[in-house]
Design a protein around this nucleic acid. Sequence first.
DNA 1: GCGCGTACGTTCGATATCCTACGGAACCAT
DNA 2: ATGGTTCCGTAGGATATCGAACGTACGCGC
Lengths: 265, 265
Amino acid sequence: MQDRQFPQPTTTVSDFVTSESWDHAPLGALVGKQTLRIKNKILSSIPESEYRLVQPHLQLFRFQAQSILHEPTQRLQFAYFPSSGLISLLVATEDGKTVEAGMVGSEGVVGVASAVGLTISPLRHLVQIPGEGLRIGVSALQSRLKSTPQLQLALSRYAVVQGMQVAQTAACNRLHDIAERLARWLLMASDRVESNSLHITHDFLATTLGTDRPSVSLAAKALHRKKIIEHRRGIVEILNRKKLEAAACECYKVIHQFNGVLRLK
Amino acid sequence: MQDRQFPQPTTTVSDFVTSESWDHAPLGALVGKQTLRIKNKILSSIPESEYRLVQPHLQLFRFQAQSILHEPTQRLQFAYFPSSGLISLLVATEDGKTVEAGMVGSEGVVGVASAVGLTISPLRHLVQIPGEGLRIGVSALQSRLKSTPQLQLALSRYAVVQGMQVAQTAACNRLHDIAERLARWLLMASDRVESNSLHITHDFLATTLGTDRPSVSLAAKALHRKKIIEHRRGIVEILNRKKLEAAACECYKVIHQFNGVLRLK
DNA sequence: GCGCGTACGTTCGATATCCTACGGAACCAT
DNA sequence: ATGGTTCCGTAGGATATCGAACGTACGCGC
């Protein structure tokens, strides 16, 4: 919250592990981990027997707003299983522009590349909406995967589905205008936060939509004029969800459906 | 070649299996499959023992220009391992526009979703440059994967790396102009065809770049004026590769590097 | 050689977006 | 309250792209 110098890599370590207090409170920690496990769709989908194998390596983790979990120049350190909050997967170009390629909430995992033996990712992992979850060190995860085939499959499957979502985003970025994309993003974020009130600035919306701030303000104004959203300093509020869905491009529904694929095997 | 009604789903079955002649020529078939196997980077990377388990299910397959291997409305039927040629992964929107999200050549596999138990893909798989390769039925592949862990890992890893490439494409589509993207596409295609002469029309370039034909013609003209490319009816020729790389956006190099990740474990 | 379908060259107006800039409002720390 | 910082509203010119249209050139089949 206090560190807002977003583009600087100085804030990229962001080791806000809250396990200090939680880990040393045996009962609390277990209850916490179990709750967070259930809220994360991937961890909740695997058998109890497999979960027990990875559980000792899971740390409780609090996602701080605007902190960076990974930079492309780094090696992947952890895989994160959010139970709440929202993490943006951003691509940054040489000239400093950025755009979001994907989004991870409680339905997924951040750093899925580590599940297939890779320790790099060209994507910046930025916390857009704070929350909490569990994380596991990359080497611990990799060494456990052989004995947790269901987890391995769930992770691989998520990687494929995430690729589909990224592909739809690639098309969306090319073919749909800013107002449509803004509406899509607000819906996707709202789904993950489970709230109609989003704490985000136009500036950050510009970095995720791959445009500049005035363009976001104009698009937001257009939605406001239609009484679809309301926004004040750092907060966007959804007034009429139905209308917002109508204002968004088809990509919202398409991407939303992909999540269903994960459950239906 | 003769069927050019591209957007129509009538040509989507495209069962141009040439295995009839090849399969019934025992020696020739084996030699053919072995050659094609070696040229495909995924099949060549797995142990001989695992290859022998899937080999009986592999069919020789010839990719016909402009044929469609898969439509989003269908279920995945086969996974294709190209040894040559180029397949575009296209996203189509409701209003009929299309744009390429990814590209598969001998380094990869088409239909990787089938490797994680899924039988859908929202991407149209379109043959851009003809070639040949091997294919395997989805159910045969899935039933063999448990006993071929190296293949499973190679496929999962490819899925992740392909996701990275798609993410970079998503950014490229948003942040780079048409001339840069055209240059990038020509380079990527040239790498896979291993030739400086590409048999493709401006119209198809427009569908892959997500724009219209006149915009492609203008961009091509700009490259031609700088003596970087030459183009006549249905053919684009790269005259100066160095200059073409300079004219392309960084995304070419970035995506190219991802392929290296596959080999380096 | 002729006709026809396909592909390319080019134009122009409309639109979306970018880029830069400035001012005002909200929030925070003191 | 006050000063500083962050965030939003807005404007105007520059640019890229779109969309539609028309003409031309190539190549194939007859």
